[in-house]
């Protein structure tokens, strides 16, 4: 059983109370909206992490706006197919988008020309997750961060790191940050399917794995995987006894897996405000808070539009800086 920190409980309680305050001054419902079901395009496959989160939150949003919400999964094209579909739809508030940090990386690497802080903007950032480095629980060669790094230094170019590593994505940038911070070289191996990635570590085909803790928590509990480093600014409550990357290199600017919902700023202001409020209530709802309670989030704070944009801008800067270092952009 994981410990719940007092501060976390307090934060949730405070958010809940605040939520009630805001309910009192509810945003005015626009005339004639919504008249029919609202479609949300999810550019990721059905059943995956993004899809599960979307369905959990949108169920609550649907209750708040009084019409059903239809989730349309449109995976493919490195999550751009769904985006283009959304971009082609009329901006009437009946087609919304779920997107993650791909929106940021695609903009920085010029795969998409649309800027997630300008051309389309967050309705709600619903989930911010950090990554960790894992080793096998029964590995005889190393058992924690220090022994792992000592081994990597003694065997240069030999240690393999399982990852999703596609050019410029979150995981590749994180692996680059790590190699720089620790001063070692890893051989990265790209596993696109999650199950293959987990099997590769448990089965002994790679030496370490870069993953998000919510996805591998069963293996952490069974002892098959052991976290040795967190990609956070301070040690997470759940993992107080393992170092975070900031301790290795205080210049590291952490980036996270950020999942949120978006609309275009050209949408009728009244509808925007109405939707933002509906998403906020959904985020603060008991059901959704329960859903995210065991997902190992960076924090469970609610972010308004300005705060969300600030978060995304910070990430864009980090990516741009890392891409320049890697020579991906000039």
């Amino acid at each position: 059983m994981r410990r719940l920190s007092f501060s976390k409980v307090l934060a949730v309680a405070a958010i809940t109370v605040l939520g009630f305050c805001f309910t009192a001054q509810a945003v005015e419902k626009p005339d004639n909206y919504p008249k029919r079901p609202v479609t949300v395009i999810v550019p990721f496959g059905a059943g995956g992490g993004a899809d599960q989160m979307a369905r959990a939150l949108l169920q609550e949003v649907g209750k708040n706006i009084g019409v059903p919400i239809i989730v349309v999964n449109k995976p493919g094209g490195n999550a751009t197919l769904g985006f283009y579909d959304y971009w082609a739809a009329p901006e009437d508030g009946y087609t919304l988008l779920q997107y993650n940090d791909d929106g940021v990386t695609h903009k920085v690497s010029s795969i998409l020309k649309q800027d997630p802080t300008v051309d389309y903007q967050p309705l709600s950032i619903a989930m911010i997750v950090y990554s960790q480095i894992y080793i096998r629980g029964n590995d005889k060669r190393f058992h924690d961060w220090d022994s792992f790094i000592a081994y990597a230094k003694a065997n240069p170019g030999k240690v393999t790191l399982g990852n999703i590593a596609q050019k410029g994505n979150l995981e590749e940038v994180q692996a680059t940050q790590l190699m720089k911070a620790a001063g070692v070289e890893f051989r990265q191996i790209s596993f696109d399917k999650p199950s293959e990635r987990y099997a590769s570590l448990v089965g002994g085909h790679v030496d370490a794995l870069l993953e998000q803790p919510g996805d591998v928590s069963p293996y952490i509990k069974s002892g098959d995987m052991k976290p040795i480093l967190s990609y956070t600014d301070v040690r997470p409550v759940e993992f107080q006894d393992i170092p975070c990357i900031k301790e290795l290199d205080d210049k590291v600017v952490n980036i996270y897996k950020v999942r949120g919902f978006y609309c275009r700023p050209t949408l009728d202001k009244k509808i925007q405000d109405y939707l933002r409020e509906a998403f906020k209530q959904a985020f603060l709802s008991e059901n959704f808070q329960k859903y995210i309670s065991d997902k190992y989030l960076v924090d469970t704070e609610y972010r308004d539009l300005d705060q969300s944009i600030e978060l995304l801008r910070g990430m864009m800067e980090t990516y741009a800086k890392t891409y320049r270092e890697l020579g991906y952009i000039k």
Binding site: G47, Q52, Y198, A199, V202, P218, Y219, S222, D224
Partner: peptide, 30 residues
């Protein structure tokens, strides 16, 4: 592998994993 290690071999078994998680059960070795 789905039940013993929480590793789905295909999309249907991946959905079964989601069912586990929805019910607060941890698929995996235990």
């Amino acid at each position: 592998p789905m039940l013993a290690l929480g590793l789905p071999g295909g999309s249907t078994t991946a959905l079964m994993l989601s069912v586990f998680l929805l019910h607060g059960l941890e698929p995996g070795p235990l």
